[in-house]
Amino acid sequence: MFDSSGPASALVPVDEVRITTLVDNVYDGLLEDGPFTTRETFGRAGEAAPQFEGGRTEVGLLGEHGFSSLVAVRRGAAEATLLFDTGLSPSAMITNADRLGTDLHAVEGVVLSHGHFDHTGGLAGLAGRLGRERLPVLAHPEVWTKRRLVVPGREVFELPTLSKTALAGEGFDVIERREPTLLADGRVLITGEVARTTEFERGMPPSHQAWLDGDWRHDPAVIDDQALVVHLRGQGLVVLTGCGHAGVLNIVKQAQRLTGVDRLHALVGGLHLGGRAFEATIDPTVAALAELSPALLAPGHCTGWRAQHALASAFPDAWVPSSSGSVHRLVAA
């Protein structure tokens, strides 16, 4: 699975990509299927509930402020499956996987988009489910950075910091890389550290701080942010982000630059445009994405309601709301 040989431009086109959203901020059991997306409705998972006739009720899936996706790529008869982020809590990803009938033992590796706890919290649950299997975890070397939020009028909130020692103790094989990495026999690309080139994507506000060189400092970049890229044969790039702290256009530009493929077919994941600090970024982001004209746009997690409304209006045929349990299936031309 974790094959880093060859340049990123050697990314192998695939015949099919399936992205299953295991955890997102929202679960909506009434969403309808679309051209690329199927939804998890009620009727698959139930629990005991004596107040109902028959003693059971339907439970749907869990939503929490976090993100996790299961990514399956197929070329011919060969298929590879990896996990991209693990959600906020130790239990949500595992619970949703069980309710979806997903066997996490099929996962061949884990990729962490960055170190924030709402993307790494489910590693504990995954370790409990898999036991001491030596599952590889790919992360940027700065994923262990200690961070905090200092918001005026609120208590200082120090974010839970991921521990490399603890992960190794739970049976994970931690692999740290800044540079782009090819996975799954060249069928999946992890961008590595993303170059910041756009004028309008300026990163996190001053309230986001990191412990650097013995002091708390503004951390706008979240330099460990990275994304997952697949080249769908005849269609273009499929880009999956965790939070998109590097800026979604910076990420797409890096994917294009690394692969030599210009066309963006699908963009899925968090775009981090929520909150007042990012309002000025929404319009130029929408305008830049309009030039790329993706066939599928499924922003979730930290994208924010203002950005969601803007994107839904600008991309009426491509935009779909994200939800735990959504499966985006994309096939080659």
Rank of each mutant, 00 (worst) to 15 (best):
G55W: 02
V12W: 13
G325K: 11
Q308I: 15
G54K: 12
T81E: 01
Q226K: 14
G121R: 08
L212M: 11
A332I: 13
E142I: 05
L82V: 04
H208D: 05
E64K: 09
M93Q: 00
H218M: 07
C243A: 15
L267P: 01
W144Q: 06
F42Y: 12
R75C: 03
R99E: 02
T102A: 09
F2E: 13
G244I: 05
L22V: 10
V188N: 02
T191S: 14
G76R: 05
G192P: 07
R18V: 09
G325M: 13
C302A: 15
A246L: 01
A255E: 12
V268K: 03
Q51T: 14
L237Y: 10
G275I: 04
E40A: 12
T197C: 07
Q226D: 11
E291Y: 12
A298Q: 14
G270D: 07
Q256G: 06
F172H: 08
L267W: 02
E133P: 04
S4F: 10
E155T: 07
V110C: 09
E133S: 14
L237Q: 10
T191P: 09
G29V: 11
D215W: 01
A166G: 06
R329W: 03
L183H: 09
V110L: 10
V320T: 08
L135A: 00
E176F: 06
V188K: 03
R74D: 07
E108K: 04
